[in-house]
């Protein structure tokens, strides 16, 4: 396989809390994202998946570890280099409404990244061609150029967000829950669009979501996070066929489905809720909710390759 486009090594991000504690938002994450492929990051709210996405783009500095783009660490880049880099690395957000300036027209919103990051001077006509071209590609006909975000529905707003990311012709996009706020029929349109753009431009995606059905649909590899840590990391088919971590199994069995044959299935119900990520105790973060946890789990656990390409952070996964 080609060299990874984006890679992190031992990436961690901590936040100081007002109480003087340390919130472990992301802890020791290694990941590799290849050109033209999608890494799905799944986990429940507060598990650190959005922080991970923002740290990968260096929208915030990591507390430890490294981020590599095409094999080169981006952490020592200055302002200028970072600006150039953000032409290659873009992001789209969950709530397109709060991420768009309400006083800018669709045209200006899509043109803004070009003006900010464009580098080379372009004539007005050339800029116009590019903006309208990318709008069209993202399913926004010309007539929306003079509309404002409040006049658009959720799906179209998300298309504007996507056009803003696409207009600088990036190679990597972090998609942070881009379809979670949309109705299913609109969600399907946006997912199809994302996949078409990927095929056409060879884009790499980091797709952050809590929805396992969506992640399964769009990803090549999947990473399951819990309280900042990676619990399982595997190619999509492998993960769904052979989930090893008790948390992954619980997640999979909790998904409601319209498939009636699965209605009476055995569920791995979890008790309790996510504990606090502030100064977490040593050992497996999932242990307090895990039905299989024993004393050994509270000591320490490492992400290990269980079979080729399939990593799991559970000391008992080998026993099962």
């Amino acid at each position: 396989m080609a060299a990874p486009l984006v890679e992190t090594v031992g990436l961690s991000k901590y936040f100081k809390t007002s109480g003087g504690g340390l919130l472990h938002a992301v802890e020791d994450v290694d990941l590799k994202i290849y050109p033209g492929r999608t890494l799905g990051v799944v986990g429940e709210s507060g598990c650190g998946k959005s922080t991970l996405g923002r740290t990968v783009l260096r929208l915030q500095m990591p507390s430890a570890g490294d981020v590599l783009f095409e094999g080169e660490s981006i952490l020592k880049y200055g302002r200028r280099r970072m600006k150039e880099l953000h032409r290659d690395m873009q992001m789209i957000f969950q709530d397109p409404y709060s991420s768009l300036d309400p006083r800018m027209s669709v045209y200006d919103l899509v043109a803004e990244p070009l003006r900010e990051l464009g580098g080379r001077r372009t004539s007005r006509a050339e800029l116009g061609e590019q903006v309208l071209g990318i709008m069209e590609k993202c399913g926004l006909p010309r007539r929306y150029a003079n509309s404002y975000p409040h006049e658009l529905d959720g799906g179209r707003r998300q298309r504007v967000g996507l056009a803003r990311a696409m207009v600088v012709n990036p190679r990597f996009i972090v998609c942070d829950e881009p379809v979670s706020a949309l109705d299913v029929s609109i969600q399907a349109q946006i997912l199809n669009l994302l996949m078409d753009l990927q095929q056409e431009h060879g884009l790499a995606y980091m797709f952050i979501t809590h929805d396992l059905c969506v992640v399964r649909h769009i990803s090549d590899d999947i990473m399951v996070m819990y309280m900042g840590c990676v619990l399982e990391y595997a190619p999509k088919e492998e993960l769904f066929k052979n989930p090893l971590h008790p948390y992954t199994r619980a997640l999979l069995s909790a998904i409601p489905t319209t498939d009636l044959s699965r209605r009476g299935r055995q569920r791995h119900m979890l008790s309790g809720e996510v504990s606090s990520p502030v100064d977490p105790p040593a050992g497996c973060r999932f242990a307090p909710r895990c039905p299989y946890a024993d004393e050994g789990c509270r000591v320490g656990v490492r992400l290990e390759e269980v079979s080729p390409g399939h990593l799991c952070a559970c000391r008992r996964s080998r026993e099962a």
Binding site: V184, S185, V214, D259
Partner: peptide, 23 residues
Amino acid sequence: EGLLGCIPELDSRAERLTPIPGQ
């Protein structure tokens, strides 16, 4: 039918989803 076609199902192999056209 349209709604059911839009959801990516866990067991489905479909490459593309079929959204309901229009608004």
